[in-house]
Design a binder for these strands. Structure first.
Lengths: 221, 221
DNA sequence: GTCTATAGGAGGATAGAC
DNA sequence: GTCTATCCTCCTATAGAC
């Protein structure tokens, strides 16, 4: 994105699209905005990606393939290191969110922009988006849920799935960076280096929280 | 929304808009969709709300005014009950998220739809949206951050603000209900009555988590 | 392969009849 | 107050020149 080498047409489009989708959303960013920011012709999007949806999907695939490959590698390393024993929950979380946090801190090569886009897209449930996200994430989610089941044998599986859900929400929101709160509380310090330990501490606290009672104390005897 | 009494034009528009904005977003839901679903004429939106943005804003104001009034009342009651002492963090969280969770469980009168819209809108940072959200939330955020500072005297204020940020993310995401995970893990049970205790336990765990070290152990001597 | 030009439709908004 | 008819802008996609 911030490379000063001249990139090829397809890459220039992907970079411009990433930034504009992050800022305006899928509908809000028009192909005219994208192609003019990329310095290419309007028709180039259809030529290279088939359609606007195809472009959107490729923006995600480019980054997510890399991100999820790293996540799987981290988990492989962790499981090899533990040699059969269940790894600690904190290590599993770190393996999962670490690569994402690194990407979010990489402002130079557009990683930060992409993570904002990703956070925002989790709540944009257009049909075609859900479809390819499911495919893109399938293996990672499957492996990590199993790892968490093993790491937290005392927490019911349904509870773990929910908590993974909550964690992804907290992380998405932190990435999407709208700072709805900041508008009111005043801009608080947001050194990206501090985000990682803060977020990790919070997530781990939530993940290992004492189990809730049933609704209004309806839990078993 | 599900009332079978004939509502007036403005209300019919608001109800239809709420549902369609929740499903398709601000740009994705057109005025033609909204007015045809409401069974009113296209021109009625401009007559009653001035513009599409005016309509969007009013959709939020209608619900948020009520929601935030309840939140302030809950905090008032809590502080009166504690008579000068700092209330427990769990009680403060309950006062803040309780009314929202109740609204999210109210499928009959459209509260659930609205909370999905709200969750989604937190990550749609269009300029005019941020503007009126800041106004709508100003008093609530101000009062609750102060309450949390008092409830958690050992946690640095900056950390509390961050954690409030993370919590709102987890909650938004839970409400927006896309279930990116559910696509992969299989539809897990989502009895709305179970959401509240689960979410509360998670949030409280995160809020009270042990403080993080600095980045990579850079904390003080 | 990349561009120009344009098709063909949908968008929000408004003027004026009723 | 509500509806009809219409304006003008903007969209995505494509056909065909270079």
């Amino acid at each position: 994105m911030a490379d000063n080498l001249p990139a090829d047409t397809a890459t220039r489009i992907l970079d411009a699209a990433e930034a504009l989708f992050a800022e305006h959303g899928f509908d809000g960013a028009s192909m005219r905005m994208i192609t003019s920011q990329a310095g290419v012709n309007l028709a180039a999007v259809n030529y290279h990606f088939g359609s606007k949806e195809g472009l959107f999907q490729e923006v995600f695939h480019r980054r997510l393939a890399e991100l999820n490959k790293q996540r799987l590698a981290c988990l492989d390393a962790l499981e090899a290191e533990s040699a059969g024993a269940a790894p600690k929950p904190s290590r599993v979380l770190e393996a999962f969110f670490g690569p994402a946090l690194e990407m979010a801190a990489d402002t130079a090569r557009g990683g930060a922009t992409f993570m904002r886009l990703l956070g925002r897209t989790y709540t944009e449930p257009a049909e075609f988006i859900r479809k390819f996200m499911a495919v893109e994430y399938a293996e990672v989610v499957e492996r990590y849920t199993r790892a968490l089941y093993a790491a937290l044998p005392d927490v019911p599986k349904a509870e773990i799935v929910w908590r993974l859900h909550f964690m992804m929400g907290a992380v998405s929101y932190a990435f999407s960076g709208i700072d709805a709160l900041a508008l009111v509380t005043g801009r608080f310090d947001d050194d990206p280096a501090l985000l990682k330990p803060r977020l990790t501490a919070f997530l781990l606290g939530g993940l290992r929280a004492p189990l809730p009672d049933g609704p209004e104390g309806k839990s078993g005897p």
